[in-house]
């Protein structure tokens, strides 16, 4: 009869010592640094760009178009998580910015899609991105290309 408590102890140890994967910890999105920059890219391929723009007006303004001489096609996209847990991307059109508010483009969120690059983008190059708003007109950013 002495074996019964030993068996119980073994079962207890099996449960308590069996290691669960450490990666069960919750994922926490690291806070992405807000800065103005563009990713390196290969001619004919994609790149992304990030910046912050503050609406200086006392009325709302709407971003209606974006273009870059370095890419055949330029859009604003948003990275998001789909209902079934996949990482997805969707185009954002006509973004409204309230008076004094910022439009923040950063990794993992809103970003500029530079599609079909006209030439390679390497570190220390720069990318011009022109934003056209319904109220204030066109503003051009020059973004340094960084590996980050």
């Amino acid at each position: 009869m002495k074996i019964a408590p030993t068996v119980l102890l073994i079962l207890f140890l099996y449960v308590s010592c069996g290691k669960e994967p450490e990666s069960k910890r919750p994922d926490i999105q690291p806070e992405m640094e807000i800065q103005n920059w563009a990713r390196p890219g290969v001619q004919g391929q994609m790149s992304g760009a990030y910046f912050t723009y503050k609406n200086p007006l006392e009325i709302s303004d709407t971003l209606v178009s974006i273009e870059s001489p370095q890419a055949m096609m330029t859009q604003i996209h948003e990275s998001y998580t789909t209902e079934d847990g996949l990482a997805g991307m969707r185009e954002k059109k006509e973004i409204i910015i309230a008076p004094g508010q910022e439009l923040v483009l950063k990794q993992g969120g809103l970003h500029v899609m530079l599609m079909n690059l006209n030439k390679d983008l390497s570190e220390n190059d720069s990318v011009k991105v022109s934003l056209t708003f319904s109220q204030i007109g066109t503003t051009t950013f020059t973004l340094p290309v960084k590996r980050n």
């Binding site: 030993t6 068996v7 010592c17 069996g18 290691k19 669960e20």
Partner: peptide
Amino acid sequence: KLFLPSSLLFLVFTFITCNSGPKIID
């Protein structure tokens, strides 16, 4: 007579379970 082998079994099992490393996911 029963205590000695069961203690040995206990030690072996403890060694195995506590040194098994992370769980195999796939």
